[in-house]
Simulated assay, not measured.
Amino acid sequence: MDLRIFTEPQQGASYDDQLALARRTEHLGFSAYFRSDHFMRMGDGDPLPGPTDSWVTLAGLARETSTVRLGTLVTSATFRYPGMLAVQVAQVDAMSGGRVELGLGTGWFGAEHAAYGVPFPERRFGPFEEQLEILTGMWGTPVGERFSFAGEHYQLTDSPALPKPVQDPLPLIIGGGGKRRTPRLAARYATEHNQSFPEKEAIAPQVRRVRAACEEIGRDPEDLVYSVALVLCAGADEAEVARRARAIGREVPELREHGLAGTPAEIVDGLASLAEQGISRVYLQCLDIRDLDHLDLVAAEVMPHVR
């Protein structure tokens, strides 16, 4: 099982907070540090220091880390024009020496769009699909050739399609639990299909749908990585589990039901159950970004049993 760390900086984190966690992630041997792409805190609480832009942050982390992979889960297609996003991601990939992965989604949080003056169209799946075609098309256009695209939502004319990412292909993550469109897009464009915070009984059926979509277009289903993101709340004992649950405003029984919560032995069992459902990568959502000891515990007491 590949274990990655996933954070929600919009809930209250500076760049320095994220850098500290990314460095600890790298030092402990987790394979990646991922962050959300949001511009407004969700729920009550201290709004400071305010949001940080995901790709500006990842550019900084790219220069201040050396081995850990970096990415978004997920960038909203509403936030950036696809041509500009292609440039940003390719540049950060170069800055990292080829360690970047792009998670891309339709966008869903209307309030943050209103708060920062970003259009939030009612129908977002069409633009999202066009963005996928443009990103992969630009990155896949041979150097010296031009890329054009005439869609309903975006038009590109004679783009030099530069710069290119270091990685070819650059890993592209498409997520969601949709039964028809999401599996089809994952099969066509993605290197990884992710389910973020799914009901646990829904995980295996969605994996089967994505695999079937691959087979329908003649793609080997084993080409894809199948992953989930689940909130983490681990503790050496029940008291520590309860303390960490309180710190993120959650209840232990609910976290056990919907996330990965409990003692290290319970976390290992939970990961084994996910593996039985076809999952080979898990994003551990760490909501208390300053609790670096949380990562230490998982690295010492969980990681050796699942690798």
Rank of each mutant, 00 (worst) to 15 (best):
D291Q: 10
E199W: 02
T25Q: 15
T7A: 12
E133Q: 15
V252T: 12
P169D: 11
E251N: 03
R209K: 15
L61Q: 07
D288W: 02
G262W: 00
M1I: 09
Y15W: 14
L292V: 14
A190V: 02
L19A: 08
D2R: 15
M40V: 00
D168V: 06
P119F: 07
F79G: 07
G140H: 09
V302I: 11
F197P: 00
P253S: 03
D16I: 11
M95A: 15
G144C: 07
L104K: 03
I134V: 09
L172A: 06
P9F: 02
T136D: 10
I279S: 11
G140V: 11
G117N: 06
Y33S: 07
E240A: 13
D296P: 04
E133D: 13
G259S: 11
D291E: 13
A187V: 03
E199G: 00
R24M: 07
V231C: 08
R180Q: 14
G29V: 05
D46N: 15
G270M: 13
Q167L: 09
A247D: 09
W108K: 01
E133S: 12
Y189W: 15
R243I: 00
D293V: 04
F6H: 10
T106A: 10
L85K: 02
E145L: 10
D293G: 05
P165C: 06
Q285P: 00
L3Y: 04
G103R: 15
A62W: 13
E122Y: 01
R219L: 00
G83L: 06
P51N: 06
S273Y: 06
G107I: 03
Q91R: 11
E266R: 01
L292T: 13
D269F: 04
V302K: 08
R243H: 03
Q11A: 07
L132G: 02
Q206H: 15
G60Y: 10
L48Q: 15
G12I: 04
R146D: 10
A190E: 11
L61F: 07
A150P: 03
P205C: 08
A111D: 05
M138R: 15
R184T: 15
E216C: 04
L255M: 03
I267P: 00
E112G: 00
E301Q: 14
E145N: 12
P221K: 09
W108R: 01
P304G: 06
A114H: 14
R211E: 14
Q206M: 12
D296A: 04
E8N: 08
R307L: 06
L232N: 00
P264H: 05
G137M: 13
A59S: 15
F147K: 07
G176A: 08
P82A: 05
S148L: 04
D288L: 02
E112L: 01
G218N: 10
G144V: 12
S14I: 07
A245M: 03
G218H: 04
R209C: 02
P49Q: 11
E122D: 10
F39K: 03
G110W: 05
R35V: 10
D158Q: 14
R244C: 01
A90D: 12
L48T: 13
F128H: 05
D2K: 11
P119M: 06
F109H: 06
E254A: 01
P198T: 01
P264Q: 07
R244K: 11
T65M: 06
A161N: 08
D168Y: 10
R244H: 00
V68I: 13
L73C: 08
S14Y: 09
L70T: 02
Q88Y: 10
V282Q: 04
L19D: 07
G218K: 06
C233H: 01
G97C: 06
G137A: 15
Y33N: 08
R63N: 11
